[in-house]
Design a protein around this nucleic acid. Structure first.
Lengths: 205, 205
DNA sequence: ATTGACGGCTAATTTGAATTAGCTTACAAT
DNA sequence: ATTGTAAGCTAATTCAAATTAGCCGTCAAT
């Protein structure tokens, strides 16, 4: 990892903790182990660092979207796998989603920036909603639609089913972003939630 | 509303949109219709304005807590009212909670400040969690406990029941904070959620 | 061996926002 | 009528942080 990259990395961490305006370029430089003016050899100014973070994020999201078209993002492919889904499998899917969102190195820091800047910047608000509300919901909705169609799940309002499945994941995710200590508690609740969900909607008749 | 109050009010609005560091005192002054230096006749400095907002919020929360001890916050009193809760009543409670959180003039702006500052300031993280996660959940948990005890609801894991009841409210609340346009859609989903919830847990056997 | 780009440094300089100084008017109380 | 205080203003001043200037060592390529 070269200096230019390390600047991006430290800046991302600091912006995620304090927000753009509260971070001084000297602070970023210090974390990287150089002096503030040296930083300008790599980026035109503070804003350019921020912009580079956005670019990097867009690149990652595109790559991720590409990758997910093969497995995660294309539920018609997944559906066959889950057409007779077990309770344990549901726990695994849900927990996996939660832990990925929570711990992925880049994603988790960037989510905090989105959180901090969402009311300030319409662009960020849109990204936030699409990444953490509409995106997961629309993916899972498709998955559940297949599962209902295949008989793995009882017939029910799929929008509602999806909301009820995902909202606890979302709430506990934002809780753990704020209070990382509570991850174990959150995982425990989540597992109970998934099992209950499976009992309610799973076709055990 | 005198000038001192209007300063507080405009500052609250601006801090809720941009966060503390992005708001200039001149900007607050302009909204109030005075020049920046005049503002110092009312508050020692920018920080003092922010502190006054916190004080005001604490005052309101205490007052609210006091009021809720009579109705909202003491579920043993409420429980008799809801001991044989109807589906419509559940919709009403849930929707009421949601709309209060979303639109209360002071609360809604302050929640945005909490959102923006939560990763920067441990104090705010604690207030956020207690106001929008642990608080509502612990209240509703007590309510559900009484309702299970009284037979209005089927026996079930009350923690889980509460999570599943509240998480959609929370997620849609944060969505509407970010995208106020989507309130109608959120209310529609919520109503479906409450009715479904009532069918799942309500004792209709 | 020389050259030139890269990436670091220290020491300015610039910038912009917060704050202070000091003046003015209105007006309430003596 | 005089005085004191509250609340506004314009014109400084301060201060911190961003940015620029200009110097230096390293090293890879000619």
């Amino acid at each position: 990892m070269n200096t230019k990259h390390r600047i991006l990395d430290e800046a991302l961490t600091l912006f995620a903790q304090k927000g753009y305006a509260n971070v001084y370029v000297g602070e970023i430089a210090e974390k990287v182990g150089i002096k503030a003016p040296s930083l300008y050899k790599h980026y035109k100014n503070k804003q350019a660092i921020f912009d580079a973070i956005i670019d990097e994020m867009n690149k990652r999201y595109e790559k991720q979207a590409g990758a997910l078209n093969i497995s995660g993002m294309n539920p018609s492919a997944d559906a066959s796998v889950y057409s007779s889904i077990s309770e344990d499998k549901l726990v695994e899917i849900g927990t996996g989603l939660f832990l990925y969102f929570l711990h992925d190195d880049y994603t988790s820091r960037f989510r905090k920036i989105l959180t901090i800047e969402q009311f300030h910047n319409k662009e960020f608000a849109n990204i936030y909603t699409s990444q953490y509300v509409d995106g997961p919901i629309s993916y899972q909705k498709m998955l559940f639609q297949f599962m209902v169609a295949s008989g793995a799940f009882n017939h029910a309002d799929v929008d509602l089913m999806t909301l009820q499945f995902y909202a606890p994941i979302y709430m506990l995710l934002t809780l753990c972003d704020r209070e990382p200590d509570r991850e174990a508690e959150a995982l425990e609740m989540l597992e109970k939630h998934f099992r209950q969900f499976s009992k309610i909607y799973g076709d055990t008749q």
